[in-house]
Computed example of a mutant assay.
Amino acid sequence: MPDATDTDGLTVGQVSMRLGATVRALHHWDEIGLARPSLRTTAGYRLYTARDLERLHRVVVYRELGVGLDDIRSILDDA
């Protein structure tokens, strides 16, 4: 994963506020590989790009519809 400066993406807190998902949910989705940030700072902080936000937005919508995380992964990763 490439290193980045703080100006290259949005932090977990910023993404949490934009999407209405908790920071813990974002961390969990990263840990299970559902929605990983494209960038990290040199200190290891997650940074999300516009493309990452698109995927996260879809995850949030499917969660609101009651779809499970494994099913969401299948839906998003299905070509």
Rank of each mutant, 00 (worst) to 15 (best):
E31S: 08
D71K: 13
D78N: 09
R36K: 15
E31L: 05
E64D: 13
T22Q: 02
A35Q: 01
Y62F: 15
T42G: 04
I72R: 10
G44Q: 10
D78G: 12
R36F: 04
V60Q: 13
M17V: 15
A43S: 14
G68L: 09
L19T: 13
L47N: 11
S16N: 07
L69W: 09
D30P: 07
G33A: 14
E31G: 07
D52S: 04
V15K: 04
L56M: 08
V12I: 14
D52V: 08
D8T: 02
L65C: 13
G13S: 09
S16H: 03
Y45N: 03
R36Y: 06
I72L: 05
L69P: 03
A21E: 02
A35W: 00
L53Y: 00
G44K: 05
G68D: 13
D71V: 15
L76V: 08
M17K: 14
Y45D: 10
A21Q: 12
A25H: 12
R63W: 03
L69D: 04
D30E: 12
I72E: 06
Y45H: 15
R40V: 08
G44E: 10
Y62C: 09
L19D: 06
S16V: 06
M17C: 10
A21W: 05
R51W: 00
M1R: 02
V15Y: 00
G68S: 14
V60Y: 03
S38A: 11
M1W: 02
D71F: 03
H27D: 11
